[in-house]
Design a protein around this nucleic acid. Structure first.
Lengths: 135, 135
DNA sequence: CTTATTGTATTAACCGCTTAGTACAATAAG
DNA sequence: CTTATTGTACTAAGCGGTTAATACAATAAG
């Protein structure tokens, strides 16, 4: 598990996003049990209260449900999971394009940049890029 | 000007990013004068101290320089501006791809999603997507 | 010279996030 | 039944971001 907290946003929100990501990607399968609040807090290196707060948020959105003393479980609602996955990627892509547009890039330029980052070997017919670099 | 502070990150950092974006895109041309700290604060709806803090950050990175009582000016260093533009788009694209990869998407899927968002009219040969939707 | 504008510094107060410590109710496990 | 585990709640303290109010030095403008 990553548990990176480089950002300047509140940790409990970063945790919420990390958990959502793991649920959306299937790293936490539907119906599976989450580690206990205390274990998760230990694993993430935060106070149990902070983890509890993040989990409460997830509870509100219906992605997990707690069973008193048995633990917390990922929802088995397939629709909810699909919606989650869809809305997350939607938001990511929209924000991405808006950010590059703000920098003055055209749609083509944006596409080219993504292509470059994904398959650096494919040389497009733009200039004469006969060289590829490894950083 | 936008001055959106939806985010949960510190306002002064959001201001730094907004200003950087405006400098990188040329909305604030090289050598041009910025509004005064007080005016900018008024425009952004924040306390002058908050704006001052953001501007100090920009100062540290050399993108603007203040002249005692004349005001603050965008740097005319063309190289620095190019570097800024390059590093910003680099970071945006890297973060974007990493985020979608975390969701389990392949390079092709990522490219398709971007294509869809940029030119929704172009129908790719994937299934039989004869319809296009407007939300 | 006088004045207004600009960048800058300082202090105090408020608020939300985080940590720390503790406690309780419910129940699965023994 | 007894015990350990789990979710949950609560209080207190510390810290950083934000606002507020004020003040000062330098200089362009009059």
């Amino acid at each position: 598990m990553a548990w990176n907290f480089n950002d300047n946003t509140p940790i409990y929100l970063q945790i919420v996003n990390t958990l959502k990501r793991n649920i959306a990607s299937g790293a936490y399968p539907p119906g599976s049990r989450l580690p206990s609040v205390r274990d998760l807090a230990l694993e993430a290196g935060v106070n149990p209260n902070t983890m509890q707060r993040a989990l409460s948020e997830l509870e509100r959105s219906g992605l997990v449900n707690s069973q008193r003393t048995a633990g917390r479980f990922i929802t088995e609602d397939a629709d909810a999971l699909l919606d989650l996955r869809k809305s997350m990627s939607e938001e990511i892509v929209s924000e991405f394009i808006a950010r590059l547009r703000d920098l003055g890039m055209s749609g083509e330029q944006i596409l080219d940049t993504v292509r470059d980052k994904i398959s650096p070997n494919t040389v497009r017919d733009e200039n004469s890029n006969e060289h590829k670099e490894e950083t």
